[in-house]
Design a protein around this nucleic acid. Structure first.
Lengths: 350, 350
DNA sequence: ATTAGCACTCGATTATGCCGAGTGCTAATA
DNA sequence: TATTAGCACTCGGCATAATCGAGTGCTAAT
């Protein structure tokens, strides 16, 4: 690790000050607070250098400096250590998540809530996306007349359901035969993938059953996310936390943030992009979406059976407390993964 | 209807002006715009009277007047006529709602979205609450090991589901026997109410089946909302519309509004209180919740088979456009009710 | 290489004066 | 008696000016 000489010491000091105060940091302030054995004049010179190097920005001529995105990037890459979180809150988190046994979605929403509480930033959470998890079992259950309830159980033991409406009322027993047919013939026994083009096998079933099959296959496809790839459902929590931060004093900025956080598509894409990496962080202009160029987004995935199935994230101003966020995310996703594996029955994974 | 003399003509003029401009209305403005054959001095005198009567408020000594809650109340009670809505939007609404065949919740969320679009205020919607709708059928479906999927079909043909986890793995067949037992013995054949205290009948089933029953009944109760009465799920749409209105220039007010709109409990109560009346309107301080004393809330219920099962509402500043809101609400809930009855299979109802 | 000193910049805050919309009151008028 | 013209008065909003102070860059001394 280079970046440990005086210049960067000053830079880091500025970053830390700015993170806590949100106000441009001046040379004298640094001289006072952090007592490096150095005068404000020297610090000023170094600051001028750092500005030339692109790490600092001067909002206006007679103001202090604020860190650039580049500075934050350097900071997190070189300097991030997990800070200690409030023990009590973490413990509470653990308990609350555990109390949501079996309620997958609730547990994750709860995790987002806790995340907000821990960090005071807006949390985002994607519900587990299981499209890639193979199907183990399909059940068709008659409700009344043309209405059918479809139950899909994945290999991981997760249950999804939907309702379909046929164009006619099926004979009693037909649904069960179709269920069996799907389970026996239309599921790849290895991957559990749904086989939609096995038209040669449909000779085994009656005319009506084939009709049912036809009308029902697309619905099953929808449920498991084959065919039309489904966007993940993304939830936010702690939307109004931003009002606590001085940079949102301007109405227009607060407004834009809240509006942005209501754009499901954008959030979904954000989350999808991160699902491959166990941990992600994009700072300010590093975000593709221009609406987000003033924010940093930190994400982490939670896993089932060792494979990431959803994302938990934090979005805040670029001057967010990266240490605290990282700690919170790491411990929450770990908790969540452990909980899921225990609850759904995956293998333990560390 | 009294309230038709000059005094009230003036009052209504002030109300209408204030609704559109959000600025205190002065005597001269009225003289100009609405040409009642009367001078500003006379209007001033009348305004002073109206203020004494509690209909007008003077924000400060040298400003015009704004209507009080009492004035709005008088206005809506005496003067409300359905305004014509944008034909195209209404037509679009109709089509969009129709395209959500079978997806009850989606249709209602869509309705809220349209409501916001029509009125430019925040919309609230409660998803249909069916706790009072009797149970027709209960199905228990094994998933794997101790996990059971519970399907409850109400008399209205609405399907609810939940997952339960037993403390042991049931024998094959046991679940079906328990399902049957519940359907035969624990459902009041008239009302469809769940009978939870029929312990004398449990002699018919085996030890294990009784154990299953014990563990599963509370879950069923939860699903249908017996026992712990469930609060309805309430959704909002168009939260950021408020930023368009000048009275929300002050940050703190906007903040409070958005925070209030995130209080599920409060919204739920709001909606529950209205579910009895087909149409509700509370203006400003008429709202019990002090957080809402600056807002008016207009609600209407949508019906299934003639019985209200959910609420659609609008919340905006007390100077909201009551006519437009009412028109939008009436036509949307009518649309929704019609759609539901057609889709779920209730009897047509007007 | 560092630092003290200093002139300079510029946003933020406060004070000041003014404008104009609006009122209430009085006296004149129909 | 009801209406209206006229007028003095109030007060928020706006623009201008004055001041303050934090912070800088530069120069010269150490």
């Amino acid at each position: 690790m280079p970046k440990r000489d005086r210049k960067y010491e000053i830079l880091y000091a500025i970053i830390r000050d700015y993170i806590t105060t949100a106000e441009p940091v001046g040379s004298r302030a640094i001289e006072k607070k952090h007592n490096l054995g150095i005068s404000s004049a020297t610090i000023r010179n170094e600051m001028a250098d750092l500005e030339d190097m692109g790490f600092l920005i001067q909002p206006h001529a007679s103001a202090g400096r604020i860190p650039s995105d580049k500075a934050y990037r350097l900071y997190v890459d070189n300097f991030l250590s997990l800070s200690s979180l409030d023990e009590n809150l973490v413990k509470e988190a653990k308990e609350q998540i555990e109390s949501y046994l079996g309620e997958l979605n609730s547990a994750i929403l709860k995790a987002a809530e806790i995340l907000t509480k821990l960090t005071s930033y807006t949390a985002i959470a994607s519900l587990p996306e299981l499209s890639d998890s193979g199907i183990k079992d399909v059940r068709l259950i008659p409700i009344e007349n043309e209405r059918i309830f479809i139950l899909v159980i994945t290999k991981k033991g997760i249950v999804k359901n939907a309702e379909a409406r046929l164009s006619f009322s099926p004979d009693p027993g037909a649904l069960e035969r179709v269920s069996n047919f799907v389970n026996l013939n239309l599921l790849d026994s290895q991957s559990g993938a749904l086989i939609t083009n096995a038209s040669e096998k449909t000779g085994q079933i009656s005319q009506m059953e084939r009709k049912i099959l036809e009308e029902i296959l697309p619905v099953i496809g929808d449920v498991v996310g084959t065919g039309s790839q489904t966007k993940p459902n993304v939830y936010t929590d702690g939307l109004t936390e931003i009002f606590n931060y001085p940079e949102f004093q301007e109405m227009s900025k607060a407004r834009r943030f809240i509006e942005t956080m209501h754009k499901q598509d954008l959030l979904a894409e954000l989350v999808m992009r991160t699902v491959d990496a166990p941990f992600g962080l994009s700072i300010g202009a590093e975000n593709q979406a221009s609406e987000l160029s003033d924010y940093s987004i930190m994400t982490a995935t939670y896993k089932l059976d060792g494979r990431p199935i959803g994302t938990l994230g934090i979005i805040g101003p670029t001057r967010m407390n990266y240490e605290k966020c990282m700690s919170a995310l790491v411990s929450l996703t770990r908790e969540l993964s452990g909980h899921l594996n225990a609850s759904i029955g995956g293998k333990p994974d560390e």
